[in-house]
Design a protein around this nucleic acid. Sequence first.
DNA 1: ATAAAGTATCACGTAACGTGAGAGTCAACA
DNA 2: TGTTGACTCTCACGTTACGTGATACTTTAT
Lengths: 249, 249
Amino acid sequence: MAMTVKEVADLVGISVRTLHYYDEIGLLTPDETTKSGYRLYSDDNLEMLQQILFFKELGFPLKKIKEIINSPSFDRHEALVLQRKMLLEKRRRLDKVIATIDKTIQHMKGEIQMTNKEKFEGFDFSHNPYEQEARERWGDEAVDKANAKIGSMSKDEQEAMAKAMNSIYQKLAALRNGSPESEEAQAAIKEWYDFLNNNFGNYSLEAFKGLGQMYVDDERFTKNIDQFGEGLAKFMRDAMAVFADKNKK
Amino acid sequence: MAMTVKEVADLVGISVRTLHYYDEIGLLTPDETTKSGYRLYSDDNLEMLQQILFFKELGFPLKKIKEIINSPSFDRHEALVLQRKMLLEKRRRLDKVIATIDKTIQHMKGEIQMTNKEKFEGFDFSHNPYEQEARERWGDEAVDKANAKIGSMSKDEQEAMAKAMNSIYQKLAALRNGSPESEEAQAAIKEWYDFLNNNFGNYSLEAFKGLGQMYVDDERFTKNIDQFGEGLAKFMRDAMAVFADKNKK
DNA sequence: ATAAAGTATCACGTAACGTGAGAGTCAACA
DNA sequence: TGTTGACTCTCACGTTACGTGATACTTTAT
């Protein structure tokens, strides 16, 4: 089950140094380490590594990969589907390059003419049409800001924060079939409001209400939140609106 | 006809800095420069750039690309054919990665099982099956050594050397239908022998004879030499053998 | 129990540019 | 003719994703 660096390296076809490096930059930290400091990779770690390699294949820089897979709105299945689309696009590009080679060979034999532009078809490095989509899904400003803060925290702090968030989410999920105006619901929402204000920028009541709306408008948030319970996003939106309106007066 | 840096950059889809860099490391030096120092790229330069990008697409480091395209045995047509093969191989790899994604998506849904090995199929970075072939064709030790020496020379020196070599080749080509033992042939071959000894390692008579044999055994040499005249390689081999045997006694 | 193989952490090196900074050059328009 | 804006040049330092030892400790195999 748990694999050492070399075992992983050999299985995957990368170097040990690469795994060390990924650990160093916090991209892939093994779940476990022996008391003598040896890294031990779990099956979950392997799946994460697979994700990382898919993104790498598509030319994403490690920093961006880290952002994406650490994003609170990251969804593995969605990622795989998009990656598939991007890889198909990459293959189309490769086909173009091959066609360009074929043409060039013919051109050399004097069989056909070729414009300068044609000689470089397929070499479109800079522009990946799906990179924009990826950015929109996982990389927008708000998320970036949150991630930046999370990224600057120590591992222990990160865990503590994740725990705190989960705890609040779970509390709310348990209440989601009741009224968003109930005392317990409003108390839990206040916890959420305070949590956000303590850990991220300072949210005005308006912004807080707007954020709640985003939870249902933006499917990235919806999906993630509803993992704690079907309909939680909607419930939170309602409770957050009530909270905002109530405390405004 | 002659294009400026930005024109080339825009046409090809690379940065100006990249062209500057390629010039800096001597990978692609523009044929012409204006008196104020502006780089002007010819159509030949564009073709060379295309070659470079094909190799880059295949993951060759620039240093190796430089070696290859400066190799005396470099043949553009042959290169294109091999590059085509390598690109097809790359596409097969890409297809494997896509298949792996498909499997992973199914695996997530619980539809199928997947071994850890299967999760990383297609990610075979290190091993390009054609890299070896490329190395054999263009990168063997002798050629590397010669290239290293040529590479360490100034551009003027390189031109001077190319001129000298061409002059000897042409002289020999003119004699190739006569006897390899003729006085003129032996005189020209002596020039060749001295030239090699002055410019590259020191060839013994035996090594010189062996080199001649390579001219017909190794098609890389044959092709290049016969450009000066059909059958020149064989003629040189014979003349070099005669020269070696005669001077040994 | 001793060698061989694996692992850890520095720490410096490398490749292929990116990114200003500062200064000169060129085409076009007022 | 002068000026402006787009290009160009050459330093020169920064960055990414590791490679490559060096040195020391740990685990596995015989």
